[in-house]
Design a protein around this nucleic acid. Sequence first.
DNA 1: CAGCGCAAGGTTTTT
DNA 2: CCTTGCGCTG
Length: 832
Amino acid sequence: MSSPDDDIPFFDDGEPSPATAPAAASGGSIAARALAASQSARAAAQPRPNYLSGLNPEQADAVESIEGPVLVLAGAGTGKTRVLTTRIAHILNLGLAYPSQILSVTFTNKAAREMKERVGVLVGGAVEGMPWLGTFHSIGVKLLRRHAELAGLRSDFTILDTDDVVRLCKQLIQAEGIDDKRWPARQFAQMIDGWKNKGLGPSEIPEGDSRGFANGKGRALYTAYQERLQTLNAVDFGDLLCLPIRLFRAHPDVLKEYQQKFRFILVDEYQDTNTAQYMWLRLLAQRPTGERPNICCVGDDDQSIYGWRGAEVENILRFEKDFPGAKVIRLERNYRSTEHILGAAGHLIAHNEGRLGKTLFTEQSDPDHERVQVHAAWDSEEEARAVGEEIEQAQHKGRKLNNMAILVRASFQMREFEERFVTLGLNYRVIGGPRFYERLEIRDAMAFFRVVSQPADDLAFERIINVPKRGLGEAAVRQVHDYARAKGIPMLAAARELVLTDELKARPRKSLTDVVEMFNRWQGMLENTPGHELAETILEESGYTEMWQNDRAADAPTRLENLKELVETISGFESLRAFLEHVSLVMDTDNNPDLDAVSIMTLHSAKGLEFETIFLPGWEEGLFPHQRALDEGGRSGLEEERRLAYVGLTRAKLYCHIWFVSNRRIHGLWQSTLPSRFLDELPEAHVEVAEIDTGYGGYGRGGRFGGGGQSGGPYGASRFDKAEPFSGNYNTPGWKRAQANKTDAARDNWGTRSGHAVERIAYGESGPRGSTIEGELVAKSTGTTSTYSVGDRVFHMKFGNGNIAAIDGNKLTIDFDKAGQKRVLDGFVSRV
DNA sequence: CAGCGCAAGGTTTTT
DNA sequence: CCTTGCGCTG
């Protein structure tokens, strides 16, 4: 975010003027220019730069097709990132553009970071970072900061996150006298987000949308919301896309500058773009001279899994129409998975209609490769147990836990695995969930910082005005709020004035005076105090740190730890301001790769990752495909679910084990379930039905689509429909192996394990990173009772301290000081 | 303002 | 069934 490009005026930001631009003499195709350039000094020596060697023909084509629009359909594991980064390196190497003339957008910060690194490696130190390589949002911020006044903002505007937005919506809804129970702020915030994904302002939303919320007040509320943002000098995430679009449309001269500037545009994960992002790209891609745009979009329509949050697969399907004369290059040569995994995935995805069509293949076939395994289990508990066993077996064969992942459809499925792994003492890490900066203590701390650096940030001010509790209740806050509104000034300024009057009662007045003085002092330090020092001062002087030190809740130490981590992070930045700028867009905690642990995550968060072994549990109708996707999305909903299944399968390099259960507890009630239709869509040739270990037959009796009664579905009868689904199941090698391994596993339980570690990546109520829970695991697995006794004092990560009230095997009933009586497994607690 | 009790809702997630 | 969030009360 702090690139050299930032400090240089817009019209001269480190790029050559047209006259001195490399090979930029007007006229002549890019190819001709490239030729000219390649004949120039540094490229002349080698006819073919070595970064090109090692690319396969399709990849090389994608890298070298520099002129005009190009769509690279990059299947899973076909070297997409390599193509993208090499293409950038190639453009730079040919001298066709300076780094600052390449616009390269990704969706996630992670992808942007990775790309920067890899380009850096390819071109060596020659490139001082690419100023316009980033996410849509971060580039949006950059544009807006430069042209803030044209968008009706000051350049130090704040970026509100979801939490702020919801609170703001709530205020507006209540101000309108609307019942916020009947019309929840969260829902309205989502609607706004949806509109912004489509690039719609308040006057452009469909009439139906407006009428559908709060008895027709949808549009009025949206208008009020935008007005409020403006007075707050704030934007939401959607604005980071929409405001640049508006700005470009209203100021063609500005647009033209950027169109000239960006000679090359690269877009990653194009299948995930929403309408606003599409419009944004369209605007920038037009060449002022009318030439064909040099835009290269890379994506995979078969991996489009974000339709529910506004992504339009149509964008990628329509590419050739949008960009006439576009060259389409397919990358189908896969370097990740075995022929069986690719065969299974390819056959499955072929059931989708809305796709451009691609078939992945590999040149590394081997008769020894294991086919995709399908396993059945009685219920989710057995499923978790069996997967645990498989993992242990694999571990005994010398495979690393780091190379294994469990990918679930819905996060509630994770729990069962976590519980099982805790009792087994198997290290695992959960990926996804609430992020670091969404944690309460981080958000509070950030609110303090925001008010200091941006005194007009009322949302932040309101958040912390009474934190820690200083007797400024609702009445006092309301008073400040109303005063601020009446005078049209920010709340902090209002507070400053208000304490000089006698409008407040004595006690709140004193408190508020203190608050105002604190902020005055901190603001005075802002310019000449290092960020982390100031942050520490703020947290100390405000009493915030102390508040948590005095809190006896189980998670208080973790929260203090997080605050410490926050301050440490800040020390890596020039100033508190620079940090705030960074954090509003980027904030991910890194994992600890040293710990060998199984990963557990949702299918969605697995996109882009790969593991040697993949477990895919929960392939049942209603869960996967998810009932709601079917109900709300119809055919396209089903197709997106199928793409999700495809993403899951193609994560695996060598082993892929799918599971389904016959009974699953949903909302507390046991439901008997049918195997997923996706199982029927897997090709026999690449699949092996591995095991059945209950006497239960008759998985499903026809009626694939929710009890239609008719056998089979649109895709024919199911192998799993038959009462005897698994022919000769007890004699298959798989079954025998499973039995043998079970014995191994049981034997190996003795003594090998000592404790285990649980890691949560960016997950809410987490312990400190890489924390270890010592469980009495050997005792547990041999069937003896827990080593604890009634009355023991123990600590639980989530519930805090408590006394053991009763013991039942490894299950402890504990009276927690705070949380009351709970039953927990002894693996979850430790002695105090 | 803290603590309790009750009601509702329980797919997927980034920025 | 189990968690979370809100509202009411002492």
